[in-house]
């Protein structure tokens, strides 16, 4: 999944305040999942298409964001088709696709630093309760950024096992993947502290 990867650009979408983009994404995701009306859905998809056109992010990146979900969506689509019919199956597909693309648009057009600053401001509201806004913001940004990294490391481990003649079963790869990830994120944490993190 290629969410969490910034693509440089100067579009209107790039220049929107990151807080507004995150809030917009939250509202959009709710609107898309709650609507039952085909016209409303069409309008929401049109908004998304316009945002994509403005962002200047190519078709290839859009497809890359959807690619990891293809098999899951295909399975769920067939299942919905069999159990509830064409309309709910299409509805599921469009809803999920729209939210994935919207989230990819936000992360593709928002620099990590800017997202961090916006989140820090948002978490600052809870500062009187003893919440460390900077740590919270960092944790959220790391989570978003680490998802594609974890997926990549997992895929590499499975591919490596298959190259050695093992089956494509992901389960035996879980432990080495977790240990490798913990080692790499520990180094990341040491690097952060060396650059002054947590001592501000």
């Amino acid at each position: 999944m290629s969410i969490g990867v910034f693509v440089p650009g100067a579009s209107a979408l790039h220049r929107l305040p990151p807080g507004l983009k995150l809030a917009g994404l939250a509202v959009y995701a709710v609107a898309v999942s709650l609507t039952d009306n085909a016209y409303v859905m069409a309008a929401l998809l049109a908004v998304l298409g316009a945002a994509w056109a403005i962002s200047g992010i190519g078709m290839a990146r859009l497809l890359a964001a959807l690619k990891p979900l293809v098999w899951i969506l295909a399975a769920l689509f067939v299942f919905q088709l069999a159990v509830s019919g064409v309309r709910p199956a299409m509805d599921m597909l469009l809803t999920v696709g729209a939210v994935v693309v919207a989230a990819a648009l936000v992360s593709h057009t928002t620099r990590t630093d800017d997202m961090l600053a916006a989140l820090k401001t948002a978490f600052g509201v809870f500062a009187p309760l003893g919440v460390n806004a900077q740590s919270c913001a960092f944790a959220v940004v790391f989570t978003i950024r680490l998802v594609p990294f974890v997926a990549t490391v997992g895929r590499e481990a499975i591919a490596a096992r298959m190259a050695r003649g093992a089956s494509g079963n992901p389960l035996p790869a879980v432990v080495p993947v977790i240990i490798r990830l913990m080692r790499e994120t520990d180094q990341l944490a040491e690097g952060l502290v060396a650059r002054g993190f947590g001592r501000a």
Partner: peptide
Amino acid sequence: AKALVRCALFAALIAALGLLPP
């Protein structure tokens, strides 16, 4: 810092496990 990043790592791990076929 390690604890913070590890929390984020396991949050990301939960997300990545969602990519396995359900």
